[in-house]
Design a protein around this nucleic acid. Structure first.
Lengths: 208, 208
DNA sequence: TTATGTGAAGAGTTTCACAGCA
DNA sequence: TGCTGTGAAACTCTTCACATAA
């Protein structure tokens, strides 16, 4: 699928939105869906839905629409959610622990398995959060390999983030969901998405 | 300040990044900073720093640079962080509680005051999280007015989100930080930023 | 001489409109 | 006839380069 190479990030970020919409539908009641209907559900335009889809292939029937269940499966496949992806999380503090519990409770994203937690606090090592074991920072390299962790969540205090990230990258981690409020540099071919509540609140203050 | 009207959202979202960088500097040691130096600190280009600043006014001296402390103050003023902004939070579950504790612990953002929490669970009403009291959903309209809440954090389960948001808007809330995984419609002049960990993980899966 | 401020060029994203297929 | 798939236009955002001021 060569055409998938050129999908802009902004399109990829919308895919989960489409997937979520298609998941809640009853596929017996609505076996076919139009780009207009899907657009309504996610709050965008029919044209954008079709343009976004066009980066990945041809999935609809002209004059008809899209098969609801088949389209959902396509989105799953495009996002690589048709097989298991092992996720790690570093920093089991307030935020980290909440993230694990939140994620493990929601059955929505089974393919994204949180396989291991990491923390530098000796009191936490060996403990389990939502059934997932906490390992020491020393074990990080070996456990990334052992569990084949490809996606890492960063939720620890801002000390030596860059060092930790570099280590993860060297061990094969391909993408990061970062909650650490510090600048991070990553090499090409690795993806980093930062989510910083403080920064988000500050930029929202502009609009108050 | 007419020119501030047209600053793109994407620029506003970068302002906290600049502010954070300027805050960590010692203003006695580095009284003047260049766009190049600031760019290095936040991981962008000197041109972008200057272009971003140009939406809000003229703050530097040609051939010299920017006064570090004065520039920091300008960013604070632009982001409206030079006076107190009252914030509310709906839904004191795992995530909500973690957010309050996290925010109250960090002294970084004093101007953003979490003034009231709201929850529908009778067991939680009257309790305090990080010194902030929990009110019932029935009290939401009156408390928004009483505390003059302009920014609302949404961290409750996805039931009747739209209804709650509409109510907040009617009572004068101007911007929302949303953690609820559901589509929300807001009128013009109101700002909504959605942060959905599930969706972020799903789009990162694409890059694994 | 140095580093800002800013038009203009370039790149990226969204919208439009219509050809083409069921 | 109806709705997709897609070039092209319109719009937005980033980068560039240079006139300008200290």
């Amino acid at each position: 699928m060569d055409r998938e190479r050129k999908a802009p990030d902004v399109v990829v970020r919308r895919l989960p939105l489409y997937l979520r919409a298609l998941k809640v539908l009853d596929h017996n009641e609505l076996p076919i869906i139009s780009s207009e209907q899907l657009a309504q559900m996610v709050g965008t335009s029919a044209g954008q839905v079709r343009k976004d889809l066009s980066y990945f292939g041809v999935f609809g029937k002209q004059g008809v629409g899209y098969q609801t269940a088949a389209l959902r499966d396509e989105f799953r496949r495009i996002l690589k959610l048709d097989h298991e992806i092992r996720v790690g999380l570093i920093g089991v503090g307030n935020l980290g622990a909440a993230l694990v519990r939140y994620h493990q409770k929601s059955p929505v994203h089974r393919p994204l398995q949180i396989a291991a937690l990491f923390d530098s606090d000796p009191k936490k090592i060996g403990r389990k959060f939502a059934e997932v074991e906490v390992f020491s920072m020393e074990q990080l390299p070996e456990k990334i390999t052992e569990f084949q962790i490809k996606l890492m969540i960063l939720a620890f205090p801002a000390t030596n983030v860059q060092e930790v990230v570099d280590l993860c990258v060297a061990k094969g981690v391909k993408s990061f969901l970062n909650f650490v409020p510090a600048p991070i540099r990553i090499p090409a071919g690795v993806k980093l998405h930062t989510s910083d509540v403080t920064m988000e609140l500050q930029s929202l203050a502009y609009y108050t």
